[in-house]
Design a protein around this nucleic acid. Structure first.
Lengths: 353, 353
DNA sequence: GTTAGCACTCGAAAGGCATGAGTGCTAACA
DNA sequence: TGTTAGCACTCATGCCTTTCGAGTGCTAAC
């Protein structure tokens, strides 16, 4: 911890740490007197004022106005998160709740992810979100065309990870069942084991001109639908929860602030984009490290894995003044649990029945 | 219009109508002087005061405080909606936009419904919602079990309306492909043409004890998953949009009001329940006609049909002071368009290619 | 280097006052 | 008998002033 910030001696770090911690829990600018009382260093308010003045010069603190206490800058939060905050331990009660609600493998992946987002907002009192894994590197297991009625078939694509996607395709022509069987076989043969992104860039039309010449007429209707369905498999779903939590925070007492925040955050496409483009692993971004419309916020995200490969992501967004330590530990515990729940083989396979 | 409210003569109706309309557009209590100027009846403020006093006695108006203007009561809104408001015509621009965005039958039902909700909130500046159709009366077309790996199969249920649902089932035992074929055949034979709700109440276990004795071992793993999948088909999805619109409304300038509103409305299960239990067709509920937690709001909903049978629902929620006429016409136009888009046979079937 | 002391700043809360939109009532009018 | 003018009264709103106190920065002494 020492040495990385040569400009800050131990005492300054301690003071800064206290200021950030205090501001995080009260949201009030913190003054020298308060600090002198709270701090275990035996320092008078005047001394602390001098130190604070230094810290302000260095860009760690700001001043809403002359006669107010100090408020941490983005730089201070960053330092706090990187070096000053102590890891917090999740209460057993929370752990149990997470385990209970996320381990039920009876449920679908989507639902479990939704639950995770819900838990996250409940435990942090912030706005939470979770996106389902990107499947671009999932491998295709088989492809099946099934008859529905005279002119309609269902295309069904099954991934190795068990994910099934289907869509109805309206053909421009009548078909025979054995044509479907042929098509299913050839396409499965060609694409089994390939990743979705690989297939998306392959030239499928060729198949109908070579291996399935007899079906080339059908190809015209099938190929675009097939591509569309693959693309659909790539879509990540976004779940969000806890919108109304922000109203408990003084920074959103101003209706306009609340409005701006909600507008930004409820724009699904845009927000998904923000999430997808973040760093992998545990990632904390504060204030100006985010895009301009989120420059008053901090985001914490982490990744979870499905079958040890596909990666989803979840996290929270809130004011920069957030309990980074607690939130981080909740997020970590949730992702760990998701990882377990989504492992390929259930670890308790060897049941005796 | 006359006669249904014997206690209210023509003049009172006209005054009430003007008060409601004025309050809806300004959100300010309306006073006698304003009204006298706006109204084409040549009446002095004093006369209008007398009439307003009568209307207050009859329960159509209230008084925030002595020296304020009058505000419509729930009863007044109800009368306004039922008898006083004039149908509003949707601007051509809106019509075109609706047609453009909802007619593209290239898209999935879910997506189209989501678009409808989006349009609705954009055009009304309120919070909008849409639920996908309830499929309990949809008929099953066929049931298919497909192999995935040694112990896992995919169950696929196809409805007559083209909806496909599937889920992976982990069996407790190994299986042969022809067992799956048999199971698919027998179950399709038994359930084809039956509605989902009918199948849900049928005793499926019997099948495995009679028609598919050889597979009765498998039945234990399959039946619960099968039922679960059917139930999954009954789930309606809820799409909401325009949350941040409420901040433009003076009634939600108070952060607590906004918070309460959002908490209620973002509770998906609870809110879906409210929607599902509303009257069919165009339904407008105002204030106390709603559940207590929505007693400050008005809801307008309408139904849309898929294949002329399955019924979905969409609408808006906002303050009682809403532009009932305009909102209604938007909703109507959208549902009409959805009905067309979701018709069984595309009307332009006879294309020459 | 630390601290006490002190003047100074500035936001927030509280009180007072004027303003004006509104009412209800009464008495006169058509 | 319905309509209206006139007038006293009410009450929310905005504005101004004052007070209060938490906070700072600076200086001088320890």
């Amino acid at each position: 911890m020492k040495g990385t910030n040569m400009d800050l001696n131990e005492r300054k770090l301690k003071i800064l740490q206290a200021i950030v911690a205090d501001f995080i829990s009260t949201s009030e600018p913190v003054g020298s007197r308060t600090l002198s009382k709270r701090l275990d260093l035996d320092l008078s308010p005047a001394t602390i004022r001098n130190e604070m003045s230094d810290l302000e010069d260095m860009g760690y603190l700001t001043h809403p106005h002359t006669s107010a206490g100090r408020v941490p800058s983005d730089k201070a939060y960053r330092l706090y998160v990187d070096q000053l905050m102590s890891a917090s331990d999740l209460p057993d009660q929370n752990k149990q709740e997470i385990e209970a609600k996320l381990s039920s493998d009876a449920e679908e992946l989507d639902q479990t992810v939704e639950h995770a987002a819900h838990l996250l907002s409940e435990m942090t009192n912030l706005v939470s979100f979770a996106i389902t894994p990107n499947r671009s590197e999932s491998k295709i297991n088989y492809i099946n065309f099934l008859p529905v009625d005279e002119e309609t078939v269902v295309l069904m694509i099954v991934c190795e990870d068990g994910k099934v996607t289907n869509s109805a395709i309206k053909l421009n022509c009548k078909y025979q069942e054995d044509q479907l069987t042929l098509m299913s076989k050839v396409m499965t043969h060609n694409f089994k084991g390939k990743t979705i992104s690989a297939v998306l860039t392959a030239n499928i039309a060729d198949l109908f001109e070579n291996d399935m010449k007899a079906l080339s007429e059908m190809g015209g209707s099938v190929v675009p639908s097939f591509m569309k369905t693959l693309e659909k498999m790539l879509n990540v779903d976004l779940y969000m929860d806890g919108y109304s939590n922000i109203f408990a925070l003084p920074e959103y007492n101003d209706v306009n602030k609340a409005k701006d925040f909600l507008s930004t955050v409820t724009n699904k496409d845009q927000f998904t984009n923000v999430l997808v483009n973040r760093d992998q692993g545990l990632s904390i971004t504060i204030g100006d490290e985010n895009s301009p419309d989120l420059s008053d916020c901090a985001l914490i995200t982490a990744d979870y894995k499905v079958n040890g490969k596909m990666v989803g992501r979840l996290g929270v967004i809130g004011p920069k003044r957030m309990k980074y330590d607690e939130v981080t530990s909740v997020i970590k515990y949730i992702t760990e649990n998701l990882n377990q729940t989504f492992e390929i083989e259930a670890p308790d396979e060897g049941e005796d029945e």
